[in-house]
Structure formats: structure tokens, C-alpha cells
């Protein structure tokens, strides 16, 4: 028989492994969603660069597609885990974040195209950083790198700004998502 000190150590060991498993599962699912957004954003920036007058249509389609696919991944994952099939709280969270972003960028800010792109990139990264406080450093690392590259693009890149953002924002999320899935 073991003493209470050894029993406490064994329980602490169990808790440590359980936390690692949870984080690993969160990273695998989130990594898929992050990489998917990366691909969508990369394509959207290139499309917006190619057809600058179609920006509104391109970004509306991109955001709706991203939202639907994110929800689909969430539903599928929850069903596999035996949880509630529809993550209603996650959906409401996304909608509130989106609504506040639209309010700021369209109603309050009255931003131009360049400012709008930077605002949404930085706004998205703010939530990655916040998520990182709960779910692991990978989110924070992605947020810091993407924010830095976005600001560099905003201040120093002119005509090729959308191409820069395709690589910095879209590419950054693809690399970050794949990295999370390997972590």
C-alpha cells in the first residue's frame, strides 16, 4: 500500500496527462479550423487583388463559407465525442463577435478598404490571443506573428498589400493550423 503523499503524486500525474490530452484534442480540432480559414483568406486576398471591385462579394462569401464550415466541424466533432450535436453557444459567440466587428468597422469607423482588412485581421487575432489564455500558447504565438506581419504590411507595403496579406494572414493561419495539429 502507498501513503497519501504518493497517492497525491499519482493523482497529480493523472491530472497532468488529462490536461495534455484535452489540449491535444483542442489543438487538433482548432488546427483544422485555423488552417481552413487560412486557405479561405489566402484565396480571398488573391481574388480581391485580382478583382478589386468585387471586394464586398468576395469577403461576404468568404466569411459565410468560413462560418458554415467552422460550424460543420464543430457539429461533427461534438457528435463524435458524444456531446450536444449543435454548439449553439459557439455559434452565438461567433455571431456576437461578427456583429460587433461590423458595427465598429462600418457604423463607427467608416473605414476604407485597407483599414477594413487590417481591422478584421487584428480583430480576429485579438480573439486568438484571448483563446490562448485558456487553450494554449499556440493561439498566442499565431496572434502575435500575424498581428506583427499585418501591421508591417499596413505601414510599409503599398500596391502589393493584398498579396502581402494573403501570405501573412492566410499563409500564417495555414502554417499555424498545421503546427497546432502536430503539437
Amino acid at each position: 500500500m502507498i501513503d497519501s503523499q504518493q497517492a497525491s503524486e499519482a493523482l497529480a500525474d493523472i491530472n497532468d496527462v488529462v490536461q495534455r490530452v484535452r489540449q491535444s484534442r483542442i489543438y487538433r480540432i482548432s488546427g483544422l479550423i485555423v488552417a481552413m480559414w487560412g486557405v479561405l483568406l489566402f484565396a480571398a486576398y488573391i481574388a480581391n487583388y485580382t478583382w478589386p471591385r468585387q471586394g464586398y462579394t468576395i469577403w461576404t462569401a468568404t466569411n459565410l463559407t468560413g462560418l458554415v464550415v467552422s460550424i460543420a466541424i464543430g457539429v461533427f466533432t461534438n457528435m463524435r465525442s458524444g456531446g450536444k450535436p449543435f454548439p449553439i453557444r459557439s455559434l452565438i459567440t461567433f455571431l456576437l463577435i461578427g456583429a460587433f466587428g461590423i458595427f465598429c468597422s462600418v457604423v463607427l469607423g467608416n473605414f476604407g478598404p485597407r483599414q477594413t482588412i487590417v481591422f478584421w485581421a487584428l480583430y480576429g487575432m485579438l480573439f486568438y490571443a484571448i483563446a490562448g489564455l485558456w487553450f494554449g500558447y499556440a493561439f498566442i504565438a499565431i496572434a502575435i506573428c500575424t498581428t506583427a506581419l499585418t501591421l508591417i504590411g499596413y505601414y510599409y507595403i503599398d500596391a502589393a498589400f493584398l498579396l502581402w496579406m494573403a501570405v501573412a494572414h492566410g499563409g500564417g493561419l495555414i502554417v499555424g493550423g498545421l503546427w497546432m495539429r502536430r503539437s
Binding site: A10, D13, I14, V18, V21, S81, G82
Partner: peptide, 14 residues
């Protein structure tokens, strides 16, 4: 103990 902790932290069947 660590192996069992990891496996039982997953949903049943995974």
C-alpha cells in the same frame, strides 16, 4: 497509470 489516464480521458471508443 499515465497511459490509462490518457486513454480514459477520451470519449468512449476513441
Amino acid at each position: 497509470l499515465r497511459i490509462m489516464a490518457a486513454l480514459t480521458a477520451l470519449p468512449d471508443g476513441q
